[in-house]
């Protein structure tokens, strides 16, 4: 187990370092320095040089890189060039909002995934079955952001049930917070729910067709008991692995959903930073995003490994 982890670590670290170099060089090497992009074609060189100095872009590249990389590790990210505010604090607050959204949508994914999966594997009548398939195909095909907009139109504009956007922290006032959270979490989580549901359906079908369940049924065990006590526990481990993989997808999707619902998370910070040419924040965020993605991938691989002995043995061989 541990050795598997250790084997994967260098690759992960290398990917992170490579990412940081690429992201860093994008600013340094692109035609036209950031300062001249900001100032435009009519700017005289002196003004560009002055702005570069203020942005800290006049020092040797290697120094810039090591200073920046040290900051990334220690969390001392400096101040935003645009507003002068400390970047670490900005990111910390926004990360709270994004994590809240991602966790809530994970709950939506798990709940709807279970509902879809179990229903699809157990409902046998043709009409409900077809409806279920149709619904899941539709949700699968509709981009998350489209679903979000349709939810706003239905529940914030046509029926004024929920707020169209914004956030109230869930922990500060759960009753209000959840009303802000509901639509973005559903918009973000439902798509993954269908994916997980399809997977669960396949697993369940496989389990239910296993012979021993037939035997159990013959012995007079109720269908319900067969499902809950036998089929589901066996189908769960691979489904959990899929769920882990979806976490990465949810984090990426959150960036767009945040824009639709004006959810003040990292995605919004990123979009604003891009809009304002706040390079430092963009560089920091991209590297942190990649770190989180790789960590999520590692953890879900680990879970997979711990559930599937072949992977682990392979690693120790």
């Amino acid at each position: 187990m541990l050795s598997y982890f250790i084997r994967r670590l260098p690759t992960a670290a290398l990917t992170v370092i490579l990412t940081s170099v690429v992201v860093f060089l994008l600013v340094g090497l692109l035609p036209g320095s950031p300062a001249s992009v900001i100032l435009g074609e009519q700017a005289d060189p002196a003004a560009v040089a002055a702005l570069e100095e203020r942005m800290g872009l006049d020092r040797p590249l290697l120094w810039q890189y090591t200073d920046w990389a040290r900051g990334l590790i220690t969390g001392d990210l400096g101040a935003s060039y645009v507003s002068g505010a400390p970047i670490a604090e900005t990111l910390g607050v926004a990360a709270g909002a994004t994590v809240e959204l991602a966790l809530a949508s994970l709950v939506v994914t798990a709940v709807t995934g279970a509902a879809f999966g179990i229903a699809a594997a157990t409902v046998r009548r043709r009409v409900p079955q077809a409806l279920l398939r149709g619904a899941s195909a539709l949700i699968f095909g509709v981009p998350e952001y489209v679903l979000g907009i349709l939810l706003i139109l239905a529940f914030a504009i046509t029926v004024r049930l929920l707020p169209a956007g914004g956030r109230e922290p869930l922990l500060a006032d759960p009753g209000i917070g959840i009303q802000y959270l509901a639509m973005p979490a559903i918009a973000l989580g439902l798509h993954s729910g269908v994916v997980v549901g399809r997977f669960l359906e396949t697993e369940l079908r496989g389990q239910l067709e296993e012979e021993y369940l037939d035997t159990a049924h013959a012995k007079g065990v109720s269908a319900r008991r067969v499902l809950w006590r036998h089929a589901l526990p066996n189908a769960l481990p691979p489904v959990i692995t899929v769920l882990g993989v979806r976490v990465g997808h949810l984090l990426g999707g959150a960036v767009v959903i945040e824009a639709v619902f004006a959810w003040p998370g990292l995605g919004q910070v990123l979009a604003n930073a891009v809009a304002n040419h706040d390079y430092l924040i963009i560089q920091d965020l991209v590297v942190y995003f990649v770190v989180v993605f790789i960590a999520v991938q590692l953890v879900s691989d680990l879970i997979h490994a711990s559930l599937d002995p072949r992977v682990r043995l392979d690693g120790e061989a």
């Binding site: 709950v107 229903a119 929920l162 707020p163 109230e168």
Partner: peptide
């Protein structure tokens, strides 16, 4: 079962104060 799921999602939407 699915009602229970929906109820979980819907906590706060009904019953509690409306944010709107």
């Amino acid at each position: 079962w699915s009602m229970a799921g929906m109820a979980l999602l819907g906590t706060g939407v009904s019953g509690c104060t409306s944010a709107v």
